[in-house]
Design a protein around this nucleic acid. Structure first.
Lengths: 226, 226
DNA sequence: CACAAATTTCAGGTATTTTTCAGCATTTTT
DNA sequence: AAAAATGCTGAAAAATACCTGAAATTTGTG
């Protein structure tokens, strides 16, 4: 996991960086507002921690312009401002969370973790569970009671999306769009082909069916006995 | 958007519900912890707002058990506890945000919005209820007290139109037009054929008749004992 | 560059859903 | 009472969506 800290108080910044590092979180530190966009676009951060007041461009302005340019990562706003109006401003400029100084590091850490979990960043080294299956996003494997299934990148992408929304039908178009993106023009049949590949691998787990089709709608992940 | 508020202070709960409603957010209100799981599993909420201290099961325990059972919706924890240890506990039991009482509604509202935006799952949870039936527009199923009826796309289209206008007779022409559109030229008998198919499936629910015909006018959805 | 693996397309098959058809039952009109 | 209109029914035909195996293409790697 990697974060960006934009804080002009060098002492506080260094202190935060050190503490995050000690918890195995990489942290880049910058001391002004104008570099935020550059960093955010070139590195994939799980969370941006922005101080409200920064030389160059302040945190709120940076946050707003990032959002306008389509940035979707998680953002926590850090500030001494306590009034309600300020908090509202913080949220409306696109922040996901707002923490008032002085704060304790543990709370910032807890909020950072909570947010990165929720925001689902592309580099999330994570393991999650759905019903009896353990999904490892690093190794692209599913573990069902000791039976390990190795999936390719694409296969895992599809399975992950389905499993994270288990119990709900995901429409064909939604899947196509989420997996391949809107610009790339892919045959709808590719999805069928992948379902075939995935189902075949899942047969390694006998007596269970995971992928269900709802005709003319889409697919749903659900562990069901055959 | 729909939320669930679990708050045993009836006055505060009612107050919050009213305020959320005034911003076009539907809110269900419960005053104890043991019903949370039931509600959360049967209705699809965008955000759960849980008080820490609740009769039955408290908020943290409810939160934890929800997460363990795979619940993925957004959760905000509400509490008077201000110590760091309490906050950490709040986050580690699976909450996405933690707000200390007393708070201002605007901040809760801002955090609710920010969180629902972030948590926003890809599926649209289109579920509605008429009389005893729960209609799931994604999976094309009707749930009557645990009895599940699977309908095809066309069948569901017809049933949905009738059920959403339950108690009113929908004219043949209106149904034909709304289901098949004006351009497609379909035999009026197709509607009869579908009524047959739908009624046959609805027989799975014994002792009830849902679809009534009004001769020379149209059809009406109404739950009636046989 | 060659090789293997992963991704995507293709062409056909199968299953389900949608629609039509032809006949029967019931109600309304003549 | 006969004829006409309306709705119900079961089965068959048509259309659609999905599944499948193999081939073609792309990507990654030494």
């Amino acid at each position: 996991m990697k974060i960006l800290i934009a804080e002009d108080d060098v002492k506080l910044g260094g202190f935060l960086k050190k503490l995050f590092n000690s918890r195995n979180i990489e942290a880049d530190l910058i001391d002004n507002g104008k570099d935020i966009a550059y960093y955010a676009q070139n590195e994939l951060y799980d969370v941006l921690i922005l101080d409200w007041m920064l030389p160059g461009t302040d945190g709120t302005a940076a946050c707003q312009s990032l959002r306008q340019s389509g940035y979707q990562g998680a953002i926590i706003m850090l500030t001494a401002r306590t009034t309600l109006a300020d908090k509202i401003t913080g949220f409306t400029c696109g922040a996901d969370d707002y923490l008032v100084k002085p704060f304790e590091f543990e709370e910032l850490y807890a909020r950072t973790i909570a947010l990165s979990r929720r925001a689902g960043s592309p580099f999330k080294h994570e393991v999650f569970q759905v019903a009896g299956c353990t999904f490892d996003c690093n190794s692209h494997t599913i573990d069902f009671k000791g039976t390990i299934i190795r999936l390719t990148a694409r296969e895992f992408q599809i399975v992950e999306l389905l499993a994270r929304n288990h119990g709900h039908v995901l429409e064909r178009d939604l899947l196509l769009d989420r997996i391949w993106g809107s610009e790339k023009d892919i045959t709808s049949n590719s999805l069928d082909a992948y379902m075939r590949l995935i189902r075949k691998k899942l047969e390694k787990i006998p007596g269970k069916i995971f992928i269900h089709n709802v005709r003319s709608v889409g697919y749903r992940w659900e562990e069901e006995d055959v």
